[in-house]
C-alpha cells in the first residue's frame, strides 16, 4: 500500500474528503438547527423570564457543579429534569416553592455532605431560574434521562 499511495494522492484525499465531510456536517447542522427551533424545543414559551433565568444560571456558573442534560460537572445532581423530580408536572406551585426553599436553605452544613453555596438570589431571580429549568424539562431529549434520578 505504501508504494501505491503517493504523497500527492494522500494530500488530495485529505482536502477532498475534508471538504466532503465538512459540507455534510454543515448540511446536517442546518437541519438540526431548524429541528431544534421548530420541533424539539418550545420556542413559543421561551419567554423573557426563561431567557433571564438562563442568565441567572450562567451568572452563578451552576454548570461547574451540576450537569444540565448530562453536560457540566458531575459534582452535584442533574438539573435538566429537576422540575420533574420535584413533581412540577403535577403540582407546579409545590415544585416552585420546594425549589426556592431548597436554594434558600443552602449551605446545609451537614458534615461529610457536599455543600451548595448560598447565592443570595432575589425572588425575581429565583422565579426566572425556575422558569428556565421548567422550560428545559420540556425539551425533547429522545427519552433521556432513563429515570427521574437524572
Amino acid at each position: 500500500m505504501s508504494e501505491r499511495l503517493t504523497k500527492s494522492a494522500a494530500r488530495n484525499i485529505f482536502y477532498g474528503g475534508t471538504a466532503f465531510f465538512l459540507l455534510l456536517f454543515i448540511a446536517l447542522s442546518i437541519h438540526t438547527h431548524l429541528y431544534i427551533v421548530n420541533s424539539s424545543t418550545d420556542q413559543a414559551t421561551l419567554t423573557p423570564s426563561v431567557a433571564q433565568g438562563k442568565r441567572v444560571w450562567e451568572h452563578n456558573a451552576c454548570i461547574n457543579c451540576h450537569s444540565l442534560l448530562g453536560e457540566g460537572a458531575y459534582f452535584a445532581p442533574e438539573l435538566g429534569n429537576v422540575w420533574v423530580r420535584y413533581g412540577g408536572r403535577e403540582h407546579p406551585e409545590g415544585a416552585r416553592m420546594g425549589l426556592k426553599a431548597w436554594m434558600r436553605a443552602q449551605p446545609t452544613g451537614v458534615p461529610g455532605r457536599r455543600q451548595m453555596p448560598q447565592f443570595n438570589l432575589s425572588e425575581q431571580e429565583l422565579d426566572d431560574l425556575i422558569d428556565f429549568l421548567e422550560w428545559v424539562s420540556r425539551i425533547d431529549t429522545q427519552g433521556w434521562p432513563p429515570n427521574t434520578a437524572g
Binding site: 494522500a10 485529505f14 475534508t18 465531510f21 465538512l22 456536517f25 438540526t32 442534560l69 431529549t141 429522545q142
Partner: peptide
C-alpha cells in the same frame, strides 16, 4: 484526513440527548 473525516460527524455523539 482520518481525524477530520471521523471527527466532524463524530460531533454526533454529543448530539444524542440535548434536543437534537
Amino acid at each position: 484526513g482520518l481525524a477530520l473525516f471521523s471527527g466532524l460527524l463524530g460531533t454526533g455523539h454529543h448530539y444524542y440527548w440535548i434536543g437534537t
